[in-house]
């Protein structure tokens, strides 16, 4: 564990707390893509199957359970909560997620470290996480005024994987023989997808104006 990875995990944790805070405080999920949340739950469930058969540390187990439960909780809020579900804009949240999930599964079946069920699913989760934010970014372009908390949520989410990039560089420099091409390339693509959002987010923050992505 190094500071970059710990900071990355804390940023990821914080992003989910900000999202839950937004939904719970405003009793609204306006601007939040249910599709992206469902993709994240799929990412966590397929990545953390090792909860069933291996133990790494209390921290590792706690964080995995938190990510699975919190994303399930967000989905419940958007789908089931009597007030929040009224504010979900399904007409705007129309990204075809199968166009993301199927190529990721095909790629995971062909490019992986080990052709076993758990390893292919883990690889699938790595590829899927790289593109899971797309429905959310498309929704933000469609909903003109992005509220601050939703903007902060996406910013933190992008920041966590950027911190992981620093973690991988640190591990390459300090751990001879450390090679994780699949996560390195996926993580780089994932962070690259956020660049455009980062640009508009930081610009709106500096000009102290409302965040709005050009459609």
């Amino acid at each position: 564990m190094n500071i970059f990875r710990f900071a990355g995990d804390m940023t990821h944790l914080l992003s989910i707390i900000v999202l839950l805070l937004k939904i719970n405080a405003t009793k609204s999920c306006a601007g939040v893509s249910l599709k992206t949340q469902e993709l994240y739950l799929l990412v966590f469930v397929t990545r953390y199957l090792d909860l069933l058969y291996s133990y790494i540390s209390l921290y590792n187990t706690f964080m995995k359970l938190f990510f699975i439960c919190s994303s399930g909780c967000v989905i419940w809020y958007i789908r089931e909560h009597k007030t929040v579900s009224q504010t979900y804009d399904s007409a705007q949240d129309t990204f075809r997620v199968l166009f993301l999930a199927c190529p990721c599964m095909i790629l995971a079946l062909t490019v992986n470290h080990d052709f076993t069920v758990t390893e292919v699913l883990w690889t699938f989760s790595i590829y899927l996480e790289a593109v899971a934010i797309l429905p959310q970014l498309v929704l933000l372009q469609r909903t003109k005024n992005v509220d601050t908390l939703t903007g902060n949520y996406v910013f933190l989410l992008g920041g966590y994987r950027a911190l992981y990039l620093l973690n991988w560089i640190y591990r390459i420099l300090t751990e001879p023989g450390y090679r994780q091409w699949i996560v390195w390339i996926s993580g780089t693509i994932q962070t690259a997808i956020y660049c455009d959002f980062f640009y508009y987010y930081i610009k709106s923050w500096r000009n102290n104006e409302r965040l709005s992505l050009p459609s």
Partner: peptide, 10 residues
């Protein structure tokens, strides 16, 4: 994984 190391990152 083939390298033997379990996936220790989240």
């Amino acid at each position: 994984a083939a390298m033997g190391a379990p996936h220790d990152e989240l």
